[in-house]
Write a protein that binds this DNA or RNA. Structure first.
Lengths: 136, 136
DNA sequence: GTAGATGCAAAGTATTTGCGACAAG
DNA sequence: CTTGTCGCAAATACTTTGCATCTAC
């Protein structure tokens, strides 16, 4: 499991350089949703010579290869997350900035239905909920 | 109806300058979702002296006043739209770039339910569907 | 009259790119 | 070998801001 990004690279014919291996490793081990700056910071610990241009190039490449996915939450920088089988959406705690992942099949289904009704086949979607902790 | 942006400004204590009136007018008459460049272009026709800095300042001000809303669709620049009572979401035709507005109460309801289940009160949300025309 | 708005140009962010050196397959 | 990648610094794209001037209220 831990090497799956490297395996995906092989499968897609993406050349595996040392820098890409490091970025892959850092993303695999990140359970949050780092932005490029933060990713660069984490990667720099393992290889201080890596440049931020390479980080930008790599996340873009990985995104196009279906390895990472990019999120652009309201009023925030672009963040990245490893893309796995299980699709999920996000709820952002607007007070703490905490991001919670969730899955709701019913909503997924309805989205397809709505698209269909409008004459479209759904190829992608974005659902973000912004909330404040219930004070009950 | 046509002047409602100006009325909202009065109601919120937002000073009504000529530039703001023009920007309000252009947004009211736009049925699409212009980005700042496009808005600036449209506004320039009515007043060629207006600066793009003012357009940026004004859309931000109007957004904070609840007059406009900002969209950041995938891989696109920020776009603005007048905010009216009827909330709606968007379906983007990934081939033509066309944006279709829709309302689905069932999805809205489910979102609240999901947030609640996670212990949150929903304060905002973003739902974007990306689709291709059905070839039936 | 005064607080706040404007235009301009300069400064900030975030991201991309040209190029010569270098490394993976 | 050869094609593609890297690091660097410069370039780009979008947005914000300092300042002197001007305007709505």
């Amino acid at each position: 499991m831990k090497d799956s990004i490297e395996q995906k690279c092989l499968a897609k014919g993406v050349k595996l350089t040392d820098q890409r291996k490091i970025i892959a490793k850092v993303m695999s081990e990140s359970n949050d949703h780092p932005n490029v700056d933060e990713l660069y910071r984490r990667v720099s610990v393992l290889d201080s010579k890596i440049s931020i241009a390479t980080v930008y190039r790599t996340v873009k490449l990985f995104e196009e290869a279906g390895i990472l996915t990019k999120h652009e939450f309201k009023g925030d920088k672009a963040r990245y997350e490893e893309l796995n089988e299980g699709h999920h959406d996000h709820l952002i705690d607007v007070q703490s900035g905490k991001i919670i992942e969730f899955v709701d099949d019913e909503i997924e289904m309805l989205q397809k239905k709505v698209a269909k009704k409008l004459g479209y086949d759904l190829v992608d979607h974005k659902l973000e909920l912004y909330g404040v902790k219930k004070k009950s």
